[in-house]
């Protein structure tokens, strides 16, 4: 199935939860969906006979600028039918939260933890959301565009690199 058809399928099924279809400016045609509905949509994509998106290739957070919203990108593939779809959700900067899909695709478990670690996006319903790459007591979320590098970590000076 092409991405266009999948988009049509999804918007039939989920109505206004499926916001738009982006083909311009990306090599992986993307369906933008609602952050709260992502779990339902991914479940549908996984379970539907004609779609069978059983594998989550990648889950990445993204922060375009200091003022824009955060986004989370899901790259899904069907190992059986060999088709692809990319999903994207936007979430507000002040209170970033996205529904967790860790119980649907176990891949998402660590990837969501990583995204939480680096962007501070709260994945609701994640079984064990905690930092994964950074230290447990690290302050701030390093990949946010407005992140200011800490000067000290546990009394140790962090060297500034130009």
């Amino acid at each position: 199935m092409t991405e266009q058809e999948i988009y049509a399928n999804l918007s039939r099924k989920f109505g206004d939860k499926v916001i738009e279809f982006m083909e311009e400016g990306t090599h992986n045609p993307t369906v933008v969906v609602d952050a709260g509905a992502i779990a339902k949509i991914v479940t549908y994509l996984k379970d539907d006979e004609k779609l069978q998106f059983d594998s989550l290739m990648n889950l990445a957070g993204h922060d375009a600028d200091v003022e824009t919203e955060f986004s989370v990108i899901y790259h899904l593939v069907s190992t059986e039918l060999k088709h692809y779809i990319t999903l994207k959700v936007f979430t507000s900067r002040d209170e970033p939260k996205v529904a967790s899909i860790a119980n649907i695709h176990r891949t998402a478990d660590w990837h969501e933890r990583e995204t939480f670690d680096l962007y501070g996006i709260n994945f609701e319903g994640h079984p064990d959301l905690k930092r994964i790459l950074m230290e447990d007591d690290w302050e701030g979320y390093p990949l946010r565009k407005d992140y200011v590098p800490a000067e000290f970590y546990r009394g140790m000076r962090i060297e500034k690199v130009k």
Partner: peptide, 23 residues
């Protein structure tokens, strides 16, 4: 050019993907 890509290739350990966003 402005845009994004998810490109995957077969590393010895498995699927190595790069998600790159360019402005």
């Amino acid at each position: 050019p402005k845009g994004e890509i998810y490109f995957r290739s077969e590393n010895p350990r498995g699927e190595l993907g790069y998600y790159i966003v360019s402005n």
